[in-house]
Amino acid sequence: MLVIGEVHTGLLQNSGEISESTCRQVLGLMAGESVRVSRRPIVHALSPERLTGVDCALPAASRSRIRGVGTVVSRCAVTGGRVAQGSSYVRVVRSETDRRLPWSHYLSRPGVVEVLGKAKAADLAEGFTGDPAPGCLDLGAVSGRFLDLVQASPLLDRRAPFKIPRTSLRWVAETGEPSIRFTLHTEQERTLRLTHPGPFTPAVVDLCEDLATHDWLLTSLLVIVERARIGATPGAQAVARLAPAIDHLMHLWMPAARVEEWLTPFWESLERRPGFTRQWRSLVDRVRDQVAMNTLALLSATAEAGRR
């Protein structure tokens, strides 16, 4: 019917970026399963997947009661040794019966939630990206706990260079005529509606996680630039407040780095409107200009002092 998921993204709670080998330990969430690491064009580490059992109402825009039973797939990721994610999703399918089956039935279909009774995909898609009622399937809570697992790792020193809220991206993917809709809600909440050609594959999840990473980077850089109060505070002070962005964020922008080729057109269309990279570049330029101007001011002050 459709696939729904939620990604939570935050700053890894460590003073500096962590090495690939530390990533492997932090993300080793399951004995006997290795962490998958790719190094090009940016180090990206992905934990083994784990399942969570659910039996509850699914969010429906019509508020009709739709019961789903099955398992949620979750995993954690660390990008550039700096950005941490907890990500969960389920494939929603119709059940062949309208009663709950033995648990082992659902375990043999990992990541599938079966709907008991009638449901319309559009109703669920609207409900999930709208305002889900309490008591409905809460993928955000599951993802949040997986992100907690990473952040609470004893290998992290919890001395992050700046404080920043997590963001959440709730997504719905369906098969059909290609389209993508990215919506900002509150400061930390985003939704994504994606219609892709052909059947669902986990590559769609990679795309959503990649978008979430970059949206978080952009959101965080905006916050840091706002906190610096460029123009309202002395140059040196503003530059000092911009420093964490330079040290920890600015090299992480790698849009569509891990997106399969057939899905890159979705990224490209978001680059045209709203233009993620355009906004990122302009912010990065602003930060660099501030640093350059401040350096010039310092240099001329030093020269002045030398002449005297």
Binding site: R145, D148, A160, K163, R166
Partner: peptide, 11 residues
């Protein structure tokens, strides 16, 4: 612990 951990991340 969960509450403190999350708040400490952002405040």
């Amino acid at each position: 612990v969960q509450l403190f951990g999350r708040l400490e991340e952002e405040f």
